[in-house]
Design a protein around this nucleic acid. Structure first.
Lengths: 327, 327
DNA sequence: TTGTAGGCGTTATCAC
DNA sequence: GTGATAACGCCTACAA
């Protein structure tokens, strides 16, 4: 592996000059050319480990996510990666399984590796987050709002719930259930709150048995839907507050011949059925990733500046009449 | 941020001793204890940048994939991550979009960052791969077999095609089409070859118009299926040679009321419909990730040793009669 | 503008 | 078994 001294020797200059050329400082044109030629010839590329050590931070950012297998987050990751790539940063993807212990471990690594920054969808406790902020590291929180003073890109989850439930009301349903995530997950609770508000605004009942807190995954949605179908007075429509729960609900419904309206907050990029009576409220995770990465890049470049919170609007509601499966 | 000298000073030992304690060498018990106490007190964790520089390699491995949004690869990534985590390695996920240029760039970064190794699902040209091997880096290739002498975890794609097509034949179909990926993608070609072999073995026709080379994605599968349905003699069954194409085919079929049998090589973790007439041949990408990561860890730990190729069997064929959507 | 030289924090090589 | 010290490869004062 060629080192900077090899390049310097071949080009007949000092290592300082090579370094300057590589980092875009002004250098006498002929020397500049000589250096570039030598770099080419040797196939030299700087050792990023040494560079990071010297510069006190690397060109790597971490993206810490609760579930890398959820298409919402992979799509978000794609957005982050596109911006990072453009800015010359690499992205390390970390999977926390919604486990605060794993999350803490990853955030420690972020510090130990002197990474340029982190984009974090928090799993739970925010102690680790606070520690990072104290040390003045660049952090952007996505998807799940936190009270700490930190850059954020999030949704107005209450409003998402309101809009999605409102769409079902507009379609004429009157007994609308809601399948959401655990009580400990703020986004799940907020979206359910929006659902309740929409029902209240329409003078509809929202009894306790129509609100189901399930695991925020496919199986959770499926069994919750089955539970609802098995009751004495099944709902005539159901709101699934995230994509995976939506998949589960649709699967449960696919087994019988139920005329139940469905609303889903999120997208189903891999749905295989026609979704005639489903309203989607797409969330555009890729855009969220793009925005978060741009924020982080700015933060990395000139550290200071006021904390910003970006509340991302959803795309337009996709009415069921469009009959279009969204990609 | 505490450094190793701070710990040494507080513990009343040399930095060398601190280093030894941290790296599990034998040290006099009382000193050992003193060092650990100091580490705790200062909240010290070693700077991994400096460590990497000195050791000539980092504790990071790269996972270079063509499409991070494909559930097959995210599941594979999960497997890799689980093993890596256990071995104390971090995983950087890189997305090539099946673009050899992007792939090359990432592999260069792997070298420049002194990463411990790479797990690579090759996008195309293998020039970059050859370069890595020359330099003696730890590399494991997954999913797509290559001729180079390098550790691999792959499928017998011809056999996958044979088995999947055979299942459709066993179910009584006689005019079986095949939707596969581009001619330039070896896995796509091999699986189609298996399909042709199975048909030939059953003395069935496999005319050119029953074999469609499509984009290996949802849209490709959908339009290919629509094309097949629009012909004069539509097939009575179709084999989709990967998961995404399978999704597309099912979507196309969901629109009408076609009695077309379907076989899919792969899984559909986010299917929303009942899949009554679908045979799945699950590929277990997570296991592939586990195996590849274990290989890489061994390779990282004691470099030498013969090159190994692991041909992973698929799980049992899932017959349509089971009526079970696979998670 | 260029070159020289010191240091980033760690580990490995020596003597002891 | 322990401690002093020289690397690892790069960047950046500082001096010329």
């Amino acid at each position: 592996m060629a080192r900077i001294v090899d390049v310097a020797e071949l080009a007949g200059v000092s290592t300082a000059t090579v370094s300057r050329v590589l980092n875009g400082k002004t250098v006498r044109p002929d020397l500049d050319a000589a250096v570039r030629r030598a770099v080419d010839e040797l196939g030299y590329s700087p050792d990023r480990t040494a560079r990071s050590l010297r510069r006190r931070h690397s060109d790597v950012i971490a993206l810490v996510l609760p579930d890398i297998e959820n298409p919402f987050f992979t799509s978000l990751a794609r957005g982050v990666e596109d911006v990072a790539q453009e800015a010359g940063l690499s992205v390390v993807l970390c999977n926390t399984d919604d486990d605060p212990v794993k999350e803490q471990r990853y955030l420690q690594i972020v510090a130990a590796e002197n990474m340029a920054g982190v984009i974090l969808a928090p799993a739970g406790g925010t102690a680790a987050l606070a520690a990072l902020l104290e040390r003045g590291r660049a952090v952007v929180v996505v998807d799940r709002p936190v009270p700490e003073p930190v850059d954020q890109v999030v949704f107005d989850n209450v409003e998402l719930g309101r809009i999605a439930a409102g769409a079902l009301i507009d379609r004429g349903y009157r007994r609308i259930a809601c399948i959401t995530g655990p009580r400990t997950t703020p986004t799940a609770v907020d979206r359910a709150t929006g659902w309740a508000q929409a029902l209240a605004a329409a003078a509809l009942d929202a009894p306790d048995d129509l609100l189901v807190h399930a695991d925020f995954r496919v199986e959770g949605g499926r069994s919750a839907m089955e539970g609802l179908l098995g009751t004495e007075h099944p709902p005539d429509a159901v709101l699934a507050t995230n994509n995976l729960v939506g998949v589960g609900a649709l699967r449960a419904l696919a087994h019988g011949d139920h005329a139940v309206g469905v609303g889903i907050i999120g997208d189903l990029p891999f749905a295989t059925s026609n979704v005639e009576n489903v309203s989607f409220l797409p969330l555009r995770p890729r855009e969220m990733g793009l925005a978060a990465a741009r924020m982080l890049v700015e933060r990395v470049r000139d550290g200071a500046g006021p904390v910003r919170t970006l509340v991302q609007g959803s795309a337009d509601l996709v009415a069921p009449s469009s009959g279009v499966l969204r990609e």
